[in-house]
Design a protein around this nucleic acid. Structure first.
Lengths: 112, 112
DNA sequence: TCAACGTATGAATATCTATTCATATGTAAG
DNA sequence: CTTACATATGAATAGATATTCATACGTTGA
């Protein structure tokens, strides 16, 4: 069971906009977005992400640090490995909406 | 009446991810996000955006060019002015979902 | 045609950021 | 405790990008 936010998020507020922009910027890198998508499927270790996306573990770790700090992902230790997964499901919605946008854009591609 | 996308958008596809990342990156700048939010409320001219956000018309125009190219916004000429507005409603959904994410994150702020 | 206004564009720059490499930290097994 | 493995961190760097300034383009009215 999830508690409701106590205060409404004000879209006009300066720091709310900055906060949103920070999150979008995080998703605005193809490598990082691929990492997010990979973690959305199932919890997965740093090494496995690196292997699946053919990236260096170091690079993956750098990105994971940012994503964890922004509360997009969370890490859970299991023995020597750390498994990363989505902190909540909103990110999935955000991406799905954006996919819909891309889909529509593609659809009217021939217009001009 | 809107036609349906003829082809499914494949999330695994390399260029789909890049396309998505490009869009997120566009929204990942606070100034640009403020411009988007302003245009989401109602069609508004370049000069009025600049005034409302206290930005130079030149800077606004630079950002609008990118947002138009990415099909986030559209521009429509009315006399000397050009009014910008959202091309479709998906961007609004994307932002709303992200606001929800921020709301949840704020809600558990005290956890660690 | 000219002037005035609104918008767009190009170059220059200072800042930011993704990536790499080397190294450190933490964990489990022997 | 040491070795091996998994992940994290810090510095260095090459490339990207937001902003500014100057200038050009397009539109309207005189």
């Amino acid at each position: 069971m999830k508690t409701q936010p106590t205060q409404l998020v004000r879209l006009d507020s300066e720091d709310t906009v900055v906060q949103l922009a920070d999150l979008f910027r995080l998703m605005g890198d193809a490598t990082r977005l691929r990492i997010i998508l990979t973690c959305l499927k199932e919890p997965i270790s740093v090494g496995d992400i690196a292997e699946r996306l053919t990236l260096s573990p170091s690079l993956v770790s750098h990105h994971l640090r940012l994503l964890k700090a922004a509360r997009v992902l969370r890490g859970e230790r299991r023995g020597k490995q750390i498994f990363y997964s989505a902190l909540d499901e909103h990110i999935r919605c955000v991406i799905e909406d954006m996919v819909a946008h891309v889909g529509e854009s593609l659809d009217i591609e021939e217009v001009d």
